[in-house]
Design a protein around this nucleic acid. Structure first.
Length: 485
RNA sequence: GGCGGCAUAGCCAAGUGGUAAGGCAGCGGUCUGCAAAACCGCCAUUCUCCGGUUCAAAUCCGGAUGCCGCCUCCA
Protein backbone atom coordinates (compact mmCIF):
# COMPACT_ATOMS: atom_id res chain seq x y z
CA UNK A 1 0.00 0.00 0.00
CA UNK A 2 1.19 3.50 -0.79
CA UNK A 3 0.83 6.05 1.97
CA UNK A 4 1.64 9.74 1.86
CA UNK A 5 4.17 10.35 4.59
CA UNK A 6 4.12 13.94 5.81
CA UNK A 7 7.70 13.56 6.99
CA UNK A 8 8.95 12.74 3.50
CA UNK A 9 6.34 14.79 1.68
CA UNK A 10 5.70 12.00 -0.78
CA UNK A 11 3.91 8.70 -1.12
CA UNK A 12 5.84 5.72 0.15
CA UNK A 13 5.31 2.00 0.08
CA UNK A 14 3.92 1.10 3.48
CA UNK A 15 6.06 -1.57 5.12
CA UNK A 16 5.32 -2.15 8.80
CA UNK A 17 8.24 -2.72 11.12
CA UNK A 18 6.99 -6.19 12.01
CA UNK A 19 5.54 -8.04 9.02
CA UNK A 20 1.80 -8.44 9.22
CA UNK A 21 1.46 -6.19 12.25
CA UNK A 22 0.60 -2.51 12.26
CA UNK A 23 0.94 -0.32 15.30
CA UNK A 24 -0.91 2.93 14.92
CA UNK A 25 -1.54 5.97 17.10
CA UNK A 26 -3.96 8.77 16.30
CA UNK A 27 -4.41 11.95 18.30
CA UNK A 28 -7.90 11.94 19.67
CA UNK A 29 -9.93 14.78 21.04
CA UNK A 30 -9.43 17.19 23.87
CA UNK A 31 -12.58 16.52 25.86
CA UNK A 32 -13.97 19.98 26.51
CA UNK A 33 -16.79 20.34 23.96
CA UNK A 34 -18.95 18.47 21.46
CA UNK A 35 -17.23 17.19 18.34
CA UNK A 36 -17.70 19.02 15.06
CA UNK A 37 -17.47 17.80 11.48
CA UNK A 38 -13.73 18.30 11.48
CA UNK A 39 -13.35 15.79 14.28
CA UNK A 40 -15.75 13.54 12.42
CA UNK A 41 -13.55 13.61 9.35
CA UNK A 42 -10.41 12.74 11.22
CA UNK A 43 -12.09 9.90 13.08
CA UNK A 44 -13.74 8.50 9.96
CA UNK A 45 -10.59 8.72 7.85
CA UNK A 46 -8.46 6.82 10.33
CA UNK A 47 -11.28 4.41 11.02
CA UNK A 48 -11.29 3.53 7.33
CA UNK A 49 -7.52 3.15 7.37
CA UNK A 50 -7.75 0.69 10.26
CA UNK A 51 -10.60 -1.19 8.62
CA UNK A 52 -8.82 -1.39 5.29
CA UNK A 53 -5.50 -2.49 6.75
CA UNK A 54 -7.37 -5.23 8.63
CA UNK A 55 -9.14 -6.28 5.45
CA UNK A 56 -5.71 -6.60 3.87
CA UNK A 57 -4.80 -9.08 6.56
CA UNK A 58 -2.81 -6.86 8.91
CA UNK A 59 -3.06 -7.33 12.63
CA UNK A 60 -3.63 -3.72 13.66
CA UNK A 61 -3.16 -2.33 17.14
CA UNK A 62 -4.87 1.02 17.19
CA UNK A 63 -4.42 3.57 19.97
CA UNK A 64 -6.43 6.78 20.14
CA UNK A 65 -6.02 8.96 23.19
CA UNK A 66 -8.23 11.38 25.08
CA UNK A 67 -6.67 14.59 26.31
CA UNK A 68 -8.35 15.16 29.65
CA UNK A 69 -6.09 17.77 31.22
CA UNK A 70 -5.60 21.06 29.43
CA UNK A 71 -6.26 24.81 29.66
CA UNK A 72 -9.53 24.58 27.77
CA UNK A 73 -10.87 21.86 30.03
CA UNK A 74 -9.96 23.89 33.09
CA UNK A 75 -11.74 26.90 31.65
CA UNK A 76 -14.78 24.86 30.75
CA UNK A 77 -14.91 23.36 34.22
CA UNK A 78 -15.08 26.84 35.69
CA UNK A 79 -17.83 27.83 33.25
CA UNK A 80 -19.95 24.76 33.83
CA UNK A 81 -19.20 24.61 37.55
CA UNK A 82 -17.92 21.07 37.24
CA UNK A 83 -14.64 19.43 38.07
CA UNK A 84 -12.15 18.87 35.27
CA UNK A 85 -12.82 15.16 35.49
CA UNK A 86 -16.54 15.68 35.13
CA UNK A 87 -16.05 17.87 32.07
CA UNK A 88 -13.81 15.29 30.43
CA UNK A 89 -16.18 12.48 31.31
CA UNK A 90 -19.17 14.34 29.89
CA UNK A 91 -17.56 15.04 26.54
CA UNK A 92 -15.96 11.64 26.22
CA UNK A 93 -19.40 10.14 26.65
CA UNK A 94 -20.74 12.51 23.99
CA UNK A 95 -17.84 11.53 21.74
CA UNK A 96 -18.81 7.87 21.95
CA UNK A 97 -22.41 8.62 21.07
CA UNK A 98 -21.32 10.64 18.04
CA UNK A 99 -18.90 7.94 16.92
CA UNK A 100 -21.67 5.35 17.12
CA UNK A 101 -23.75 7.46 14.75
CA UNK A 102 -20.80 7.60 12.38
CA UNK A 103 -20.09 3.89 12.76
CA UNK A 104 -16.54 4.59 13.92
CA UNK A 105 -15.04 1.60 15.69
CA UNK A 106 -13.51 1.96 19.11
CA UNK A 107 -9.75 1.97 19.20
CA UNK A 108 -8.07 -1.03 20.80
CA UNK A 109 -6.62 1.17 23.50
CA UNK A 110 -8.02 4.56 24.45
CA UNK A 111 -5.70 5.96 27.08
CA UNK A 112 -6.29 9.17 28.99
CA UNK A 113 -3.56 11.61 29.90
CA UNK A 114 -4.44 11.91 33.59
CA UNK A 115 -4.03 8.18 34.05
CA UNK A 116 -0.44 8.29 32.80
CA UNK A 117 1.11 10.97 34.95
CA UNK A 118 3.91 8.72 36.31
CA UNK A 119 4.87 7.72 32.76
CA UNK A 120 5.02 11.34 31.71
CA UNK A 121 7.08 12.31 34.73
CA UNK A 122 9.48 9.54 33.86
CA UNK A 123 9.93 10.75 30.28
CA UNK A 124 10.54 14.25 31.60
CA UNK A 125 13.12 12.94 34.03
CA UNK A 126 14.95 11.11 31.24
CA UNK A 127 15.01 14.29 29.17
CA UNK A 128 16.40 16.22 32.12
CA UNK A 129 19.04 13.56 32.76
CA UNK A 130 20.08 13.63 29.13
CA UNK A 131 20.31 17.39 29.10
CA UNK A 132 17.43 17.89 26.66
CA UNK A 133 15.37 19.64 29.27
CA UNK A 134 15.80 22.08 32.09
CA UNK A 135 13.71 23.04 35.07
CA UNK A 136 13.15 26.56 36.28
CA UNK A 137 12.89 28.08 39.70
CA UNK A 138 9.15 28.41 39.18
CA UNK A 139 8.83 24.65 38.80
CA UNK A 140 8.35 24.50 35.01
CA UNK A 141 10.29 22.09 32.84
CA UNK A 142 11.12 23.03 29.24
CA UNK A 143 12.46 21.14 26.28
CA UNK A 144 15.60 22.52 24.59
CA UNK A 145 14.44 22.68 20.99
CA UNK A 146 17.78 23.75 19.54
CA UNK A 147 19.45 20.67 20.92
CA UNK A 148 17.54 18.55 18.41
CA UNK A 149 19.38 18.80 15.09
CA UNK A 150 16.44 17.74 12.91
CA UNK A 151 13.81 19.84 14.60
CA UNK A 152 11.39 21.20 11.99
CA UNK A 153 11.77 18.35 9.51
CA UNK A 154 8.24 17.04 9.95
CA UNK A 155 6.52 20.41 9.59
CA UNK A 156 8.97 21.65 6.94
CA UNK A 157 10.34 24.65 8.75
CA UNK A 158 13.66 25.54 10.25
CA UNK A 159 14.37 27.02 13.62
CA UNK A 160 15.76 30.28 12.25
CA UNK A 161 12.53 31.01 10.38
CA UNK A 162 10.49 30.07 13.37
CA UNK A 163 12.54 32.46 15.40
CA UNK A 164 12.19 35.40 13.03
CA UNK A 165 8.54 34.98 12.29
CA UNK A 166 7.89 34.28 15.88
CA UNK A 167 4.54 35.04 17.31
CA UNK A 168 5.77 32.86 20.09
CA UNK A 169 5.37 34.68 23.34
CA UNK A 170 8.77 35.15 24.93
CA UNK A 171 8.84 33.73 28.38
CA UNK A 172 11.22 35.11 30.99
CA UNK A 173 12.08 31.67 32.24
CA UNK A 174 12.76 30.06 28.89
CA UNK A 175 16.32 29.81 27.64
CA UNK A 176 14.96 30.18 24.14
CA UNK A 177 11.54 31.31 22.94
CA UNK A 178 11.26 28.13 20.85
CA UNK A 179 11.44 25.87 23.89
CA UNK A 180 8.19 24.26 24.88
CA UNK A 181 6.82 23.09 28.21
CA UNK A 182 7.09 19.48 29.29
CA UNK A 183 5.78 20.19 32.74
CA UNK A 184 3.86 23.22 33.95
CA UNK A 185 4.08 24.38 37.55
CA UNK A 186 0.75 24.33 39.34
CA UNK A 187 -1.33 27.44 39.54
CA UNK A 188 -3.99 27.89 42.21
CA UNK A 189 -7.40 26.35 41.50
CA UNK A 190 -5.99 24.05 38.85
CA UNK A 191 -5.57 20.29 38.89
CA UNK A 192 -2.03 19.25 39.71
CA UNK A 193 0.10 16.25 40.52
CA UNK A 194 3.19 15.77 42.65
CA UNK A 195 6.44 15.63 40.73
CA UNK A 196 10.18 15.94 41.41
CA UNK A 197 9.79 19.59 40.33
CA UNK A 198 6.92 20.32 42.63
CA UNK A 199 3.22 20.26 41.98
CA UNK A 200 2.20 20.70 38.39
CA UNK A 201 0.66 19.22 35.27
CA UNK A 202 2.03 17.83 32.03
CA UNK A 203 2.45 19.84 28.82
CA UNK A 204 0.24 18.91 25.90
CA UNK A 205 2.73 16.99 23.77
CA UNK A 206 3.99 14.77 26.54
CA UNK A 207 1.02 12.45 26.83
CA UNK A 208 1.33 11.15 23.28
CA UNK A 209 5.00 10.35 23.79
CA UNK A 210 4.43 8.54 27.07
CA UNK A 211 1.32 6.64 26.02
CA UNK A 212 2.42 5.61 22.54
CA UNK A 213 5.67 4.31 24.00
CA UNK A 214 3.79 2.42 26.67
CA UNK A 215 1.19 0.78 24.45
CA UNK A 216 2.98 0.46 21.11
CA UNK A 217 6.71 0.79 21.71
CA UNK A 218 9.01 3.06 19.76
CA UNK A 219 9.33 3.23 16.84
CA UNK A 220 5.80 2.40 15.78
CA UNK A 221 4.32 2.40 12.29
CA UNK A 222 1.69 5.07 11.85
CA UNK A 223 0.94 8.30 13.64
CA UNK A 224 -2.09 10.23 12.48
CA UNK A 225 -4.07 13.36 13.13
CA UNK A 226 -5.48 16.47 11.57
CA UNK A 227 -3.02 18.53 9.57
CA UNK A 228 -3.15 21.35 12.09
CA UNK A 229 -1.43 19.06 14.55
CA UNK A 230 1.68 18.83 12.41
CA UNK A 231 3.02 21.95 14.06
CA UNK A 232 3.68 22.38 16.85
CA UNK A 233 2.16 19.26 18.38
CA UNK A 234 3.65 16.48 16.30
CA UNK A 235 6.93 18.26 15.71
CA UNK A 236 7.39 18.65 19.46
CA UNK A 237 6.18 15.19 20.21
CA UNK A 238 8.68 13.80 17.73
CA UNK A 239 11.53 15.89 19.13
CA UNK A 240 10.97 14.93 22.75
CA UNK A 241 10.34 11.27 21.93
CA UNK A 242 13.47 10.89 19.85
CA UNK A 243 15.50 12.75 22.43
CA UNK A 244 14.18 10.58 25.27
CA UNK A 245 14.40 7.21 23.55
CA UNK A 246 17.33 7.87 21.29
CA UNK A 247 15.77 6.43 18.17
CA UNK A 248 13.27 7.12 15.43
CA UNK A 249 9.81 7.79 16.84
CA UNK A 250 7.36 7.12 14.02
CA UNK A 251 7.77 5.62 10.55
CA UNK A 252 4.76 7.06 8.74
CA UNK A 253 3.06 10.34 9.63
CA UNK A 254 -0.41 10.73 8.17
CA UNK A 255 -2.42 13.94 8.32
CA UNK A 256 -5.95 14.54 7.12
CA UNK A 257 -7.11 17.80 5.52
CA UNK A 258 -9.58 20.22 7.02
CA UNK A 259 -13.27 20.54 6.68
CA UNK A 260 -14.13 24.03 5.48
CA UNK A 261 -17.20 26.20 5.51
CA UNK A 262 -17.41 28.88 2.84
CA UNK A 263 -13.82 28.08 1.93
CA UNK A 264 -12.66 28.73 5.48
CA UNK A 265 -11.33 26.23 7.93
CA UNK A 266 -13.96 24.98 10.33
CA UNK A 267 -12.61 25.61 13.78
CA UNK A 268 -13.46 26.48 17.30
CA UNK A 269 -11.61 29.76 17.18
CA UNK A 270 -13.45 30.95 14.06
CA UNK A 271 -16.72 29.84 15.58
CA UNK A 272 -17.92 28.45 12.24
CA UNK A 273 -18.17 24.87 13.37
CA UNK A 274 -21.11 22.55 13.08
CA UNK A 275 -21.31 19.74 15.57
CA UNK A 276 -21.95 16.15 14.68
CA UNK A 277 -25.07 16.13 16.80
CA UNK A 278 -26.41 19.15 14.93
CA UNK A 279 -26.10 17.23 11.68
CA UNK A 280 -27.52 13.93 12.77
CA UNK A 281 -30.63 15.68 13.87
CA UNK A 282 -31.57 16.07 10.24
CA UNK A 283 -29.24 13.73 8.34
CA UNK A 284 -28.47 10.07 8.82
CA UNK A 285 -25.02 9.47 10.32
CA UNK A 286 -24.17 7.25 7.39
CA UNK A 287 -24.87 10.13 5.01
CA UNK A 288 -22.33 12.25 6.85
CA UNK A 289 -19.82 9.42 6.84
CA UNK A 290 -20.35 8.82 3.13
CA UNK A 291 -19.95 12.53 2.43
CA UNK A 292 -16.66 12.62 4.32
CA UNK A 293 -15.33 9.79 2.17
CA UNK A 294 -16.26 11.31 -1.19
CA UNK A 295 -13.14 13.41 -1.19
CA UNK A 296 -9.53 12.34 -0.80
CA UNK A 297 -8.54 12.49 2.86
CA UNK A 298 -5.69 14.96 2.37
CA UNK A 299 -7.70 17.57 0.45
CA UNK A 300 -9.77 20.25 2.07
CA UNK A 301 -13.43 19.33 2.14
CA UNK A 302 -16.09 22.00 1.80
CA UNK A 303 -19.16 21.47 3.89
CA UNK A 304 -22.61 22.74 3.07
CA UNK A 305 -26.15 21.48 3.65
CA UNK A 306 -26.44 21.05 -0.10
CA UNK A 307 -23.44 18.75 -0.20
CA UNK A 308 -25.09 16.51 2.39
CA UNK A 309 -28.32 16.43 0.41
CA UNK A 310 -26.31 15.34 -2.58
CA UNK A 311 -24.52 12.68 -0.59
CA UNK A 312 -27.87 11.46 0.67
CA UNK A 313 -29.20 11.04 -2.85
CA UNK A 314 -26.08 9.25 -3.99
CA UNK A 315 -26.17 6.90 -1.02
CA UNK A 316 -29.82 6.24 -1.65
CA UNK A 317 -28.98 5.14 -5.16
CA UNK A 318 -26.56 2.56 -3.80
CA UNK A 319 -29.11 1.27 -1.32
CA UNK A 320 -31.79 1.08 -3.98
CA UNK A 321 -29.61 -1.26 -5.97
CA UNK A 322 -28.73 -3.25 -2.88
CA UNK A 323 -32.40 -3.59 -1.99
CA UNK A 324 -33.28 -4.68 -5.51
CA UNK A 325 -30.59 -7.39 -5.39
CA UNK A 326 -31.71 -8.57 -1.98
CA UNK A 327 -35.29 -8.75 -3.14
CA UNK A 328 -34.43 -10.86 -6.20
CA UNK A 329 -32.36 -13.25 -4.12
CA UNK A 330 -35.31 -14.06 -1.90
CA UNK A 331 -36.77 -16.18 -4.70
CA UNK A 332 -36.61 -19.91 -4.24
CA UNK A 333 -36.95 -21.19 -7.78
CA UNK A 334 -34.20 -20.69 -10.31
CA UNK A 335 -33.90 -21.76 -13.91
CA UNK A 336 -30.92 -23.41 -15.55
CA UNK A 337 -28.95 -22.29 -18.54
CA UNK A 338 -27.16 -19.21 -19.85
CA UNK A 339 -23.99 -17.88 -18.32
CA UNK A 340 -23.28 -14.26 -17.52
CA UNK A 341 -19.53 -14.24 -17.70
CA UNK A 342 -19.33 -10.65 -18.98
CA UNK A 343 -21.05 -9.30 -15.91
CA UNK A 344 -18.87 -11.51 -13.79
CA UNK A 345 -15.75 -10.19 -15.47
CA UNK A 346 -16.85 -6.61 -15.09
CA UNK A 347 -17.43 -7.26 -11.43
CA UNK A 348 -13.94 -8.68 -11.06
CA UNK A 349 -12.50 -5.70 -12.84
CA UNK A 350 -14.31 -3.28 -10.54
CA UNK A 351 -13.07 -5.20 -7.55
CA UNK A 352 -9.50 -4.91 -8.79
CA UNK A 353 -9.83 -1.21 -9.50
CA UNK A 354 -11.34 -0.62 -6.10
CA UNK A 355 -8.36 -2.20 -4.38
CA UNK A 356 -5.93 -0.32 -6.60
CA UNK A 357 -7.57 2.94 -5.56
CA UNK A 358 -7.50 2.09 -1.87
CA UNK A 359 -3.94 0.84 -2.08
CA UNK A 360 -2.91 4.17 -3.60
CA UNK A 361 -2.94 6.35 -0.49
CA UNK A 362 -6.47 5.31 0.44
CA UNK A 363 -8.27 7.06 -2.39
CA UNK A 364 -11.81 6.60 -1.11
CA UNK A 365 -13.13 9.19 -3.58
CA UNK A 366 -12.01 7.09 -6.52
CA UNK A 367 -13.10 3.89 -4.80
CA UNK A 368 -16.61 5.25 -4.34
CA UNK A 369 -16.70 5.78 -8.11
CA UNK A 370 -16.31 2.02 -8.59
CA UNK A 371 -19.12 1.38 -6.14
CA UNK A 372 -21.34 3.24 -8.57
CA UNK A 373 -19.85 1.16 -11.34
CA UNK A 374 -21.24 -1.86 -9.53
CA UNK A 375 -24.58 -0.15 -8.97
CA UNK A 376 -24.92 0.56 -12.67
CA UNK A 377 -23.88 -2.97 -13.57
CA UNK A 378 -26.38 -4.43 -11.11
CA UNK A 379 -29.24 -2.23 -12.34
CA UNK A 380 -28.44 -3.04 -15.94
CA UNK A 381 -28.37 -6.77 -15.29
CA UNK A 382 -31.56 -6.60 -13.27
CA UNK A 383 -33.34 -5.36 -16.38
CA UNK A 384 -32.68 -8.76 -17.88
CA UNK A 385 -35.45 -11.23 -17.04
CA UNK A 386 -33.37 -14.29 -17.80
CA UNK A 387 -30.62 -13.00 -15.57
CA UNK A 388 -33.01 -12.40 -12.71
CA UNK A 389 -34.44 -15.89 -12.89
CA UNK A 390 -31.49 -18.11 -13.64
CA UNK A 391 -29.07 -19.85 -11.33
CA UNK A 392 -26.16 -18.21 -13.09
CA UNK A 393 -27.75 -14.83 -12.55
CA UNK A 394 -28.37 -15.64 -8.93
CA UNK A 395 -24.70 -16.42 -8.42
CA UNK A 396 -23.67 -13.13 -10.00
CA UNK A 397 -26.22 -11.21 -7.93
CA UNK A 398 -24.94 -12.86 -4.78
CA UNK A 399 -21.41 -11.98 -5.77
CA UNK A 400 -22.46 -8.37 -6.27
CA UNK A 401 -23.96 -8.22 -2.82
CA UNK A 402 -20.90 -9.86 -1.32
CA UNK A 403 -18.69 -7.33 -3.06
CA UNK A 404 -20.81 -4.47 -1.77
CA UNK A 405 -20.59 -5.93 1.72
CA UNK A 406 -16.85 -6.27 1.50
CA UNK A 407 -16.39 -2.71 0.32
CA UNK A 408 -18.91 -1.51 2.84
CA UNK A 409 -16.99 -3.25 5.57
CA UNK A 410 -13.86 -1.25 4.79
CA UNK A 411 -15.65 2.04 4.27
CA UNK A 412 -18.01 1.48 7.18
CA UNK A 413 -21.06 2.12 5.04
CA UNK A 414 -23.72 0.13 3.06
CA UNK A 415 -23.92 -2.27 5.98
CA UNK A 416 -27.56 -1.70 6.83
CA UNK A 417 -30.36 -3.86 5.45
CA UNK A 418 -31.41 -1.92 2.37
CA UNK A 419 -35.09 -1.55 3.07
CA UNK A 420 -34.57 -0.52 6.64
CA UNK A 421 -32.01 2.09 5.73
CA UNK A 422 -34.21 3.66 3.07
CA UNK A 423 -36.98 3.91 5.66
CA UNK A 424 -34.59 5.59 8.07
CA UNK A 425 -33.58 8.10 5.42
CA UNK A 426 -37.21 8.85 4.76
CA UNK A 427 -37.79 9.42 8.43
CA UNK A 428 -34.83 11.81 8.64
CA UNK A 429 -36.21 13.76 5.73
CA UNK A 430 -39.63 14.01 7.30
CA UNK A 431 -38.01 15.46 10.36
CA UNK A 432 -35.86 17.84 8.32
CA UNK A 433 -38.79 19.22 6.35
CA UNK A 434 -41.31 18.91 9.12
CA UNK A 435 -43.59 16.54 7.27
CA UNK A 436 -45.95 14.14 8.99
CA UNK A 437 -45.53 10.65 7.52
CA UNK A 438 -48.98 9.62 8.75
CA UNK A 439 -50.52 12.38 6.71
CA UNK A 440 -48.58 11.35 3.63
CA UNK A 441 -49.65 7.76 4.07
CA UNK A 442 -53.29 8.79 4.31
CA UNK A 443 -53.00 10.80 1.12
CA UNK A 444 -51.34 7.91 -0.66
CA UNK A 445 -54.13 5.58 0.42
CA UNK A 446 -56.75 8.07 -0.67
CA UNK A 447 -55.08 8.31 -4.05
CA UNK A 448 -54.97 4.55 -4.38
CA UNK A 449 -58.71 4.35 -3.77
CA UNK A 450 -59.23 6.88 -6.52
CA UNK A 451 -57.00 4.85 -8.79
CA UNK A 452 -58.91 1.69 -8.03
CA UNK A 453 -62.00 3.54 -9.15
CA UNK A 454 -60.15 4.67 -12.28
CA UNK A 455 -60.57 8.24 -11.10
CA UNK A 456 -57.19 9.27 -12.43
CA UNK A 457 -57.98 12.93 -12.22
CA UNK A 458 -58.42 12.80 -8.46
CA UNK A 459 -55.38 10.53 -8.16
CA UNK A 460 -53.21 12.95 -10.12
CA UNK A 461 -54.40 15.83 -8.05
CA UNK A 462 -53.12 14.14 -4.92
CA UNK A 463 -49.88 13.31 -6.69
CA UNK A 464 -49.37 16.97 -7.53
CA UNK A 465 -50.30 18.05 -4.06
CA UNK A 466 -47.69 15.78 -2.55
CA UNK A 467 -45.15 16.71 -5.20
CA UNK A 468 -45.34 20.28 -4.01
CA UNK A 469 -43.90 19.08 -0.72
CA UNK A 470 -41.17 17.23 -2.57
CA UNK A 471 -42.85 13.86 -2.22
CA UNK A 472 -43.13 11.33 -5.01
CA UNK A 473 -45.65 8.54 -5.09
CA UNK A 474 -44.52 5.39 -6.84
CA UNK A 475 -46.88 2.76 -8.13
CA UNK A 476 -45.18 -0.60 -7.84
CA UNK A 477 -46.25 -4.20 -8.21
CA UNK A 478 -46.46 -4.29 -4.42
CA UNK A 479 -48.77 -1.32 -4.24
CA UNK A 480 -48.08 2.37 -3.89
CA UNK A 481 -44.95 3.60 -2.16
CA UNK A 482 -43.75 7.08 -1.45
CA UNK A 483 -40.45 8.80 -0.97
CA UNK A 484 -38.83 12.16 -1.34
CA UNK A 485 -37.89 13.13 -4.86
C1' G B 1 7.03 38.60 6.66
C1' G B 2 8.47 33.03 6.35
C1' C B 3 6.86 28.14 4.79
C1' G B 4 3.30 24.86 2.44
C1' G B 5 -1.01 23.50 -0.47
C1' C B 6 -4.82 24.02 -4.14
C1' A B 7 -7.17 25.78 -9.13
C1' U B 8 -10.67 19.95 -13.67
C1' A B 9 -18.25 20.77 -16.71
C1' G B 10 -23.84 24.41 -13.85
C1' C B 11 -22.29 22.20 -8.80
C1' C B 12 -19.31 18.25 -6.08
C1' A B 13 -15.13 15.35 -7.53
C1' A B 14 -11.07 11.33 -9.33
C1' G B 15 -7.10 11.49 -12.36
C1' U B 16 1.33 13.09 -11.53
C1' G B 17 3.56 11.88 -18.99
C1' G B 18 -0.23 8.29 -23.48
C1' U B 19 -5.26 11.29 -25.20
C1' A B 20 -10.67 13.60 -19.28
C1' A B 21 -13.70 8.01 -13.54
C1' G B 22 -17.87 8.86 -10.66
C1' G B 23 -22.02 11.66 -8.15
C1' C B 24 -25.74 15.68 -8.29
C1' A B 25 -28.46 18.75 -11.66
C1' G B 26 -30.16 19.04 -16.94
C1' C B 27 -31.85 17.20 -21.95
C1' G B 28 -33.91 13.17 -25.45
C1' G B 29 -35.87 8.00 -25.54
C1' U B 30 -37.86 3.06 -23.24
C1' C B 31 -41.17 1.68 -19.30
C1' U B 32 -45.90 3.88 -16.97
C1' G B 33 -53.22 5.44 -16.96
C1' C B 34 -49.86 9.82 -15.59
C1' A B 35 -45.44 9.52 -12.75
C1' A B 36 -41.15 7.77 -9.86
C1' A B 37 -37.17 4.32 -9.78
C1' A B 38 -34.37 1.75 -13.40
C1' C B 39 -32.34 1.25 -18.33
C1' C B 40 -30.41 3.41 -23.22
C1' G B 41 -28.42 7.93 -25.37
C1' C B 42 -26.57 13.16 -24.77
C1' C B 43 -23.93 16.60 -21.42
C1' A B 44 -15.38 19.33 -20.59
C1' U B 45 -11.53 18.46 -28.21
C1' U B 46 -10.41 20.21 -22.81
C1' C B 47 -8.32 20.75 -17.22
C1' U B 48 -7.27 29.40 -14.17
C1' C B 49 -3.90 32.18 -17.61
C1' C B 50 1.01 32.83 -20.29
C1' G B 51 5.49 30.60 -21.81
C1' G B 52 8.84 26.13 -21.92
C1' U B 53 10.44 20.64 -22.05
C1' U B 54 8.57 16.21 -24.82
C1' C B 55 6.72 12.16 -30.35
C1' A B 56 3.05 13.03 -26.44
C1' A B 57 1.30 17.54 -20.74
C1' A B 58 -4.65 18.33 -16.65
C1' U B 59 -0.19 15.77 -15.24
C1' C B 60 6.90 17.96 -15.62
C1' C B 61 9.57 23.11 -15.49
C1' G B 62 9.29 28.74 -15.21
C1' G B 63 6.09 32.94 -14.58
C1' A B 64 1.24 35.45 -13.57
C1' U B 65 -3.52 35.55 -11.15
C1' G B 66 -6.92 33.75 -7.53
C1' C B 67 -8.17 30.88 -3.13
C1' C B 68 -6.66 28.36 1.31
C1' G B 69 -3.64 26.53 5.39
C1' C B 70 0.49 26.54 9.05
C1' C B 71 3.88 29.80 11.77
C1' U B 72 -0.94 30.75 18.68
C1' C B 73 -5.32 26.51 21.17
C1' C B 74 -7.35 23.68 17.09
C1' A B 75 -9.01 17.13 13.89
Amino acid sequence: MLIYNTLKRRKEEFIPLHPGKVRMYVCGITAYDYCHIGHARSCVVFDVLVRYLRSQGYDVTFVRNFTDVDDKIIKRAQQEKLTEDEVAEKYIEAFYLDMDELNVLKADIEPRATRHIPEMIQVTQVLLDKGYAYSTAAGDVYFRVRKMPHYGLLSARNVEELQSGSRIAPDEDKEDPLDFALWKAARPEEPSWESPWGKGRPGWHLECTAMSEKYLGIPFDIHGGGEDLTFPHHENEKAQSEAAFGREFVRYWIHNGFVRVDSEKMSKSLGNFITIRDIINSFHGEVLRFFLLTKHYRSPLDYSDGSLEEAEKALKRIYWAKTALQKELQKEKWSKGQEFSEADQELNSLSQKWDDAMLDDMNTAEAVGYVFGLVRLANRMLENKVFRKSEAGRDVMQKMLDQLDKWGHSLGIFHRPGKEFLEELKFMRCRRYDIDPEFVLKMVQKRQEARNNKDFKAADEIRHQLAEQGIEVMDTSEGPKWDFA
